[in-house]
Nucleic acid binder design. Structure first.
Lengths: 137, 137, 137, 137
DNA sequence: GTGGTCTAGACCACT
DNA sequence: GTGGTCTAGACCACA
């Protein structure tokens, strides 16, 4: 279910967050479904419960899950996910910066475009979209 | 010359690196031109000299500048910039992750494509390219 | 009869307590009327019987209901409700804190006053008071 | 500078958050001013550094402070404070619930109104407002 | 059993 | 020095 990479520069709790987001967004974890308990998941991943806890709290803050003390943590409805404008802006800023770094490294505009198209196609497949994603234009 | 944002999540030395890279790649700092000394720049930015030092070291490692002991630090030729494969891989990974985050937030493939096209156009203009960049496809 | 919100931050047993208090204070549950048994209510709400049990105990402690062994739990007279000074102090403290939070968020005194007047009017209506509640002054 | 009440039902990190909010909103901590470091404050309060850390992170998330790794934590501009709609809604819900509890305890509408007016006057004084706060109407 | 909070350490990158 | 992350425990209230 989970794949942690301890060597990654992404911190453990961020990896947990992202993997759970993926499970929820792709519909593997359906609305109302219970997530493993903090202690369970911490054992599965052989990480400290506090680390899992931190991930769950952040997921709740962003609206991906809701928590009932004494019962557990449950997947929220996709419509509950908060499209926090500040968060979006930060992602866009990251994109902008990363793209710039690539041009600094000598990538031509064409190379970047084909690279991005590759990445977008990956995503399309992962989302299991039937309709073919249109090209950037 | 410089705009540091202390409130940014990006560390100070990274901001310095990126801004100098920008100056070099856009041709504002021409090949062989001298950069301000570590002490000068640290005063200008009211930043710890160690921080500037670290930035210069990293810039040299990546081939953007070269250092002549006793003389200072100079902009290198654009052709000297090392296209470090590891660095590229990391950037691609960042792109992949960021794009995924956007889909988690409910952005449709269409929205992301148009967002990226916008960012690429920005870059095109910044690079001062005459020919219009083609769209992603 | 009951509306539990599992996603609420309020614990389940508190929600039960408050909803029963509401039924009693508004006269829906009249003096001497029997409440559903712990088991019944726990089934209705699909909640752990211990949770309902805890709510009933607390309601009894506060004088809202009385229990007759072997018969069940009954709504008490409104005059039996204990105006527990400690509880009142705690509620006042909560009010104080909440109002302060609002000022921290930049709410002007005016805004808070009009907000409160709105809430008080809601209450007036719920209580079915004929005479119009006077404004805060 | 700080007054922690270990016996309070409010958790330690929440108390820290609220006291710092107060210092910032009342202008005791001015924009750009440095807060005590996590370790410093933890020693002053004889609490664990992690507890202070948790408070600082939450304050940053809400826009009250900004953080520069390696430098410290600084008071943000009052205009940066995020008036998160969800947070406001929750506060209003708390108010509504608390007011209802009071009526359950037998408080008449008039009693509650005079209680609230008392609390609002406290706030007015604390804010050091010159102009007399108008009454609720 | 569950999550929530807290302590007491440790290591890392950045200034 | 600073904040950020993580581990290894503990205690509490709630279900």
């Amino acid at each position: 279910m989970f794949q942690l990479d301890l060597k990654s520069r992404e911190s453990i709790y961020e990896q947990i967050i992202n993997q759970i987001k993926e499970l929820i967004v792709t519909g593997v974890l359906k609305e109302g479904e219970k997530l493993p308990s903090v202690r369970e998941l911490s054992k599965i991943l052989t990480v400290n419960p506090n680390t899992v806890q931190k991930s769950y709290r952040e997921l709740e803050r962003q609206g991906y899950v809701y928590t009932v003390a004494g019962l557990g943590c449950f997947a929220a409805s996709l419509s509950d996910i908060k499209r926090d404008e500040a968060a979006v802006q930060q992602l866009v800023e990251t994109l902008r910066s990363t793209l710039r770094q690539l041009t600094y490294l000598g990538f031509a505009a064409e190379e970047i475009r084909s690279l991005l198209n590759g990445l977008l196609r990956e995503d399309d497949q992962k989302q299991g979209e039937r309709k073919k994603g249109s090209d950037l234009s």
